[in-house]
Amino acid sequence: MYRIRFHGRGGQGIKTAGRILGNAFFHEGFQVQDAPRYGAERRGAPIFAYVRASRDVIHERGIIRHPDLVVVADDSLVPVPAAGILEGISRRTVLLVYSHDTDATWQARLSTSAKILVLPPPKKPTEVPEQGSVGAACVGAAARLIGVISADALRRAIEDELADAGPVVVRENVHYALDAYEYVGEHQGLVKEGGEPSARDYERPAWISLPFEDARVSAPAIYAAATSVEVRTGLWRTLRPVIDYARCNRCWWVCGSFCPDSAIDLGDQGYPQIDYDHCKGCMICVAQCPPHAISAIPETDAEQEQPAEIEP
């Protein structure tokens, strides 16, 4: 059985990518199971989708513990533990990352035995896919790495999935997918079907009997204020608002009042300061600032200026 996980952010076409790959397998005569997984979070938050494909009936379901292929549509998610990208990967897993950085950089960055392959965005800026189509590029590369999906099945899979969005969208996505399909051509068939878990040789789960704990401990209640600040929603951001203090007229209130996330406070001098740990990148502040003192820059550029630390 093939077991494939797609990771990305809400809004990048991850659910669609999973469905396109599912369609493609289906066109090639496979039994298929595909599903997106997301919580209560919205656009920008990490999500994943998974696809299983087999010549036999698929009984396994739910999360994929031991993937054959992990596709990462947004490389900024790799260091985010909550995104779970590195969960269950092993020597035989292929990790495909959509990234400006090279294979070697990623190999050095991640101490993993998995095979890492980078799919770079096109060099010409006009060729770079819209956010929603990054998934299509990823699925194109994934299809080739799997090796049992023809370009024609891939094209039909995209047409099936995106027909309602109109011919222009279909054409664009087919284009991105086929470009990526070509790009990884030399690695065709790199991803191998995984086997079934062995019932002869396995580790028994460390089950415990849950101890009784009284209701002061075991009721679902939070005995503290504003613990949500421990959630770093700054990781949702793909664009970063940056304040040009030379243009800021210290109005005191506009950006901070309109920021839905309480992520802009005034500093000592009356200048607003953005809490990048929590700013989700909605850009309301950019849109509302009267003297246009706040501008949006791609998060990747901001990171290059100020390299983000990768958690171990």
Partner: peptide
């Protein structure tokens, strides 16, 4: 038997710490 592992309880302990369960 409830299917529940030591590791899961350890994860719950971390959540309880954030929730300020004494």
């Amino acid at each position: 038997r409830l299917l529940y592992t030591e590791k899961e309880l350890r994860e719950v302990r971390k959540l309880q710490a954030i929730a300020h369960v004494e």
